[in-house]
Design a protein around this nucleic acid. Structure first.
Lengths: 335, 335
DNA sequence: CTGCAATATGCAAGCGCTTTCTACGGGGGA
DNA sequence: TCCCCCGTAGAAAGCGCTTGCATATTGCAG
């Protein structure tokens, strides 16, 4: 069974006995075609399994929109639900989404952006604010509508659908300090080329510096994997913190698991917090005190903003508040 | 700042002072263009921020490939890593991936397939084997290369990159029975329109029926959400099972969390198992005994198969073995 | 019946790119 | 010195579709 050439509009025209123009109209603007003709055309389309060719359409007209999203990885629950919401909102508007991933490599982003634009993406959803000069230049040169998510920043850096990572992390650190902890450790993601991580670290630092007697006794950077987070736990545990702030739920949960394995009680011997509020934080035992990131709302907002931009508008950033979700992994230090 | 028209190959040609044909060659087959000319062209491309228009390329040539993946949802770690692997393997081959989701609605699948094909997808990755007649007809009529994943089946149903859900579930049930359990409950996903779930249920049923004295005392179907899994736990717990087989890790972990909340000890009062082996199963306390599904391998295999099909070959299915991962949530019943 | 406005359909010109065929030089072998 | 061939670049024909404009039809008022 070889792959037969996909049927073209000409084939349909031949079968239906009308011109290609009529087929096109029957598809795009059915009212302009008489019912009888339309029925004949639809029958022909069904018979042939005809599907209009995107490239040709995109070329002949400019109303067929596609937008692209470039994210670090899909294998991270944190982005997954936001992307899901983004895609749902887009498809309600009849817009298709293209996804590409960078694997947290900032250099890869520009390549992927180009690839997506080549594919016809007329708008982009990007994560975070920091990017190489070459990427900014390209975006600027081509003046591509794009929305930045999972972060927030001044209006001159672009339009955001996100939240302030520094402020969020600061609030979490303040919460930990308010519990009475003074010797704090942090397990963050890899900060190189990741502004969200850098901001979170900065937020935690700021809170600790503002608090008399508090000290960041250890800071480890770890990939977003349970295993690595466990190793990072071992590393920071050596500094005897009374609380460990995790830069994500994966990191917090990984620390809890390793603590359990080491016979270290949470929150008895050490408190642990997470960040993101994904399912993992609930399953963890003890359940992780974490910071809820409004992923779904962010995804939807990003879609709405992008759609508005494509429609020629200049929508404002949507900055979301985060909130601390108190669960069992954080308690006052043993006195 | 309005969006200026994207530069076309003509613009580049004008700037570089050569014909469009030369530009095209410089991009697609650089060796055919003299170095000096090529440099001039590249400079012009950079200056203008030129990106070839996909539609036009796809139309003028047929070597620009895109493949589509239709999955139930991205917000499920189970698919996420497989998709990530799929996409990575594709992009190594220079093929772009388009993603669409159905939200577990079988009717939505055909719509998404059409949308993807319209977008230029020349191959598809689909989940599972069961689909409405209309979808099969379309696939058949258009003779679209496609690979089925997360499942396995006879060769006449298509080419698979997956595993046998029934056999896997059966092996898990047999493992539970071998531990001495006789009153078994199952928390499965929603079986309507989801062959993977139906197969897993069938596998569990088969194992139990083959075992004297064993009984499936309760079967609940639940969406893949922790909260719902908890409710399902309450439901099946009423039937006093000594072991609960979860149809996925989310389901198993949700059951464990709820059991903890109810003061039911796992595995003391009841054993619980998972399925998939995603991070969740490790974080759960006790860690979930589960069944490892080779998601990453499956994703890569799916990509390789699809690529081979697009290249005109007729690759064979890749069926993977699953393996039970013993952890702490399964123990012999209290005697 | 005729004439005219609608309404329904066809014609053909592109959209931006690739690719075949052709043209032009210039270098090396005879 | 002349030719031929190779390397390089241009001209032009589509790829499958949309759409403005032209051309039938049809229906209805007069």
């Amino acid at each position: 069974m070889t792959q037969n050439q996909p049927p073209t509009i000409d084939d349909v025209a031949k079968v239906a006995g009308v011109s290609t123009a009529t087929i096109s109209r029957a598809i795009n603007d059915p009212d302009k075609v008489a019912k009888a003709t339309r029925d004949r055309i639809n029958a022909a389309i069904d018979e042939l399994g005809y599907t209009p060719h995107f490239g040709a359409r995109a070329m002949a007209s400019s109303r067929f929109k596609t937008v692209g999203a470039v994210i670090p990885t899909m294998a991270n629950a944190m982005f997954a639900s936001g992307m899901q919401a983004f895609q749902e909102a887009l498809s309600e508007a009849g817009v298709t989404m293209l996804v590409a991933t960078t694997g947290y490599d900032p250099e890869a982003e520009l390549r992927q952006i180009r690839a997506l634009m080549t594919q016809g993406a007329s708008g982009l959803m990007l994560i975070g604010t920091e990017r190489p000069e070459a990427t900014r230049r390209f975006l600027n040169l081509r003046n591509v509508p794009h929305v930045l998510t999972w972060a927030a920043g001044p209006a001159d850096e672009g339009v955001f659908a996100g939240f302030d990572n520094r402020r969020a992390a600061k609030s979490m650190a303040e919460h930990v300090l308010a519990m009475g902890h003074r010797k704090i450790a942090m397990i963050a993601g890899i900060s190189a080329g990741n502004d969200r991580v850098a901001e979170r670290i900065a937020g935690v630092r700021a809170a600790i510096e503002a608090c008399d007697g508090a000290e960041l006794v250890a800071l480890a950077e770890s990939p977003y994997l349970l295993q690595n987070a466990g190793d990072a736990f071992d590393e920071v545990w050596a500094a005897k913190p009374t609380a460990i702030i995790g830069g994500s739920d994966v990191l917090g949960a990984g620390a809890v698991v390793r603590a359990r394995a080491r016979g270290v009680s949470v929150p008895g011997d050490v408190s642990v917090t997470g960040f993101d509020d994904i399912g993992l934080s609930l399953v963890s035992a003890p359940a992780l005190t974490t910071l809820r990131v409004p992923q779904i709302e962010m995804g939807r907002a990003a879609a709405e903003i992008l759609l508005a931009q494509l429609a020629g508008g200049t929508p404002k950033s949507a900055i979301f508040e985060t909130e601390i979700v108190e669960r069992a992994s954080l308690a006052p230090p043993r006195s």
